[in-house]
Design a protein around this nucleic acid. Structure first.
Length: 421
RNA sequence: GUGAGCGUGGCCAAGCGGUAAGGCACCUGACUGUGGCUCAGGAAAUCGAGGGUUCGAAUCCCUUCGCUCACCCCA
């Protein structure tokens, strides 16, 4: 085999489509119910959009983007996340003049140069949602509600929702200072990565999962951001929790939940399946009140989430939440014997399709037995047989593949016979 | 980027130093115009690639590529 899939990509074969169709249709329906219109943005953008928006210090931008110069020498980047492009579009099309917040959803491929493993690809697809232009906690609750309805509507069991608040520019600095004060004397016990994070992005130390150093103990006793929230952030977070309770959405506060993109403020959340898999997060998002301004717009709040469709399908299959198959791919297979019949058969198959039936022509040269086998293998409901006798009489043999019953009928009636299930 | 496991026809898979089983799928046929069962036959593998050891290697050694899983990070 000379050519293979590029690493971390996958083909979606005909038999995979029902799962794809299932997940996207459930997503589409929830987006519709919540009033989120669809937006599509390009697969690539100017590299600067993500550097500015997502943050140069993040792993995603630092070492995972597919960035390369186009023929004019300008750097373009394959979309590594969905939010920045939507915010760019919000600004570019003056959406601040629309009723706020502007609610939008999207389906798009996402590219990140990573080492692939279960549930992690270099090209994956996300269903995402953004509500831009309203900072009220009711919007946080709405977006989380949408995510929760979506994942539960898929039939997934045992999901859990983790939420946290990571503050905003008025209170996070104080917390970071407290966090560094706490770590400073014990930094020697932390893993090398955490020691680096201490300087560059202390919040991420909370996210460390290494057990070969004291990181877990350090995290457990570390000061909690929720104890450092300023009055506004505190009220915001409390109100969100009240709304979630009103919605009867079960959640737990994970004080170490920190997301990897720089633009998040206040609310962050994740939905996880019950399996203890490493790549488990199936939906994640948060509020990004500083992002639009970062991209050159007026200060504008926003919140959204991204959800990995491949991971969702993995879970749907694992839990057998939905058993999906192609079903019978064809209604009728047209079988012919002899050259005269072949021409009539070609026409009959075409006429059947025009009448709305899924019709397939068996290869005219093959033996009757071979053509019948083919019809059987395709799981056809009917086989229509044309030989010299039928052609002369202007008829066709209509055979039900389920019952084995066969009757001769005028050619013109073939379509209506197939219609009868 | 780090670590581990694995690479035999389209798919699954035996063989583990003597020169490639088997199953699924595909194609053909079984008194020649009828499927799904059965039977017979057929096509399909430079045993991931390169090098080495050996009279001889899919089987041993080295290198390399790829796949998978975990770490990291994230959806």
């Amino acid at each position: 085999m000379q050519f293979r899939l590029p690493r971390g990509t996958q083909d979606r074969l005909p038999e995979d489509q029902p799962y794809w169709e299932y997940v996207t249709s459930v997503a589409r329906e929830q987006a519709r119910l919540f009033g989120y219109g669809q937006i599509d943005t390009p697969v690539f953008e100017h590299a600067g959009l993500f550097q500015r928006g997502v943050g140069e210090g993040t792993d995603i931008v630092e070492k995972e983007t597919y960035t390369f110069p186009d023929r004019s020498g300008e750097d373009v980047t394959l979309r590594p996340e969905g939010t920045a492009p939507v915010c760019r579009a919000y600004l570019e099309h003056g959406m601040h003049t629309r009723p706020q917040p502007v609610r939008m959803h999207y389906f798009c491929p996402i590219f990140r140069y990573e080492r692939p493993q279960a549930g992690r690809l270099r090209q994956h697809h996300q269903f995402g949602v953004e509500a831009i232009g309203d900072g009220d906690p009711s919007v946080d609750a709405e977006v989380i509600d949408l995510g929760w309805r979506f994942t539960t509507a898929l039939g997934l069991q045992g999901l859990s929702l983790a939420i946290n608040s990571i503050g905003d520019p008025s209170c996070r600095p104080q917390y970071l200072a407290a966090l560094k004060d706490y770590y400073a004397p014990r930094l020697g016990e932390a893993c090398p990565d955490c020691r680096m994070r201490y300087e560059r992005n202390p919040l991420r130390m909370l996210d460390c999962k290494r057990t070969d150093f004291a990181c877990q103990d350090l995290v457990a006793e570390a000061p909690r951001i929720t104890d450092f929230l300023c009055a506004d952030c505190d009220v915001h977070f409390a109100t969100l929790r009240r709304y979630l309770e009103a919605l009867d959405i079960p959640f737990f506060i994970n004080p170490t939940l920190v997301r990897g993109l720089d633009y998040y403020t206040r609310t962050v959340f994740e939905i996880l399946p019950p399996e203890e898999g490493a790549q488990s997060v199936v939906l994640g998002g948060g509020r990004y009140d500083g992002l639009i301004e970062q991209l050159g717009g007026r200060p504008t709040p926003g919140i959204g989430f991204g959800s990995g469709l491949e991971r969702l399908i993995l879970n749907v299959k694992r839990q057998e939440a939905a058993a999906l198959s192609d079903g019978a791919p064809v209604d009728a297979v047209v079988v012919s014997l002899g050259e005269a019949a072949a021409s009539v058969a070609v026409r009959l198959a075409s006429d059947l399709r025009q009448a709305g039936h899924r019709a397939v022509l068996a290869q005219p040269g093959r033996s009757l037995r071979g053509q019948m086998r083919h019809a059987s293998a395709l799981n056809a409901r009917y086989t229509l047989v044309l030989g010299d006798a039928e052609v002369a009489a202007g008829t066709v043999q209509v055979k039900s593949m389920d019952t084995g019953e066969q009757r001769e009928a005028p050619l013109a009636e073939a379509a209506s016979l197939v219609s009868r299930a």
